[in-house]
């Protein structure tokens, strides 16, 4: 990909922290302004994907290894579903967040935060995982094309 362009590298390095902070802002400010787990997850994934596109997928996988990403996909779903199970143990219906704090209103608040965190983890890691496999395929295809070219030359 575009590994040699100085301008892109510098601009991406400047933009990355801004995008990540914006994603976290969207995540935790989602109850007050527009935003939430879905948007924040996509934004965070987009930051890493940008990094991967400019510096190469191997570099991105050093920052966020594939193993962690693959663990995070089910982790988010488990957080979401586990919230429901927890509220059942606390004597309420599935996914009713009222018993999580002394007052039902605060409980709802906590519940929304936890559930949004689960959504965020699943969405971000799924997008990243998809990008990793597609990008990895592309790199492999390049290598195979190179090897095929060499073989053709020898033959």
């Amino acid at each position: 990909m575009m590994r040699d362009t100085v301008i892109l590298r510098v601009v991406v390095k400047l933009l990355l922290p801004a995008i990540l902070i914006f994603a976290l802002y969207v995540q935790f400010h989602g109850e007050y302004g527009p935003g939430g787990g879905f948007q924040a997850g996509v934004a965070a994934a987009a930051a890493i994907i940008l990094y991967g596109m400019i510096f190469g997928i191997d570099e991105a996988q050093k920052v966020v290894p594939r193993r962690i990403v693959n663990t995070m996909i089910p982790l988010g779903v488990l957080i979401f579903a586990g919230t429901g199970v927890a509220s059942m143990f606390l004597g309420e219906n599935y996914l009713n967040y009222s018993p999580f704090a002394s007052k039902p209103v605060n409980g709802q608040h906590v519940g929304i935060l936890v559930v949004e965190a689960g959504v965020f983890i699943t969405v971000a890691s799924t997008m990243l995982a998809i990008f990793y496999v597609f990008g990895g395929r592309a790199d492999e295809a390049d290598q195979r094309a190179d090897e095929a070219g060499k073989k053709g030359g020898e033959g």
């Binding site: 939430g36 879905f38 997850g41 996509v42 969405v123 799924t126 997008m127 998809i130 496999v133 597609f134």
Partner: peptide, 20 residues
């Protein structure tokens, strides 16, 4: 629709994987 968009891109990705 918010959830539908994200689900949409996930399914499109699945379709693209099949295409590959």
């Amino acid at each position: 629709i918010l959830t539908a968009i994200v689900v949409g891109v996930a399914t499109i990705a699945l379709g693209l994987a099949l295409v590959v």
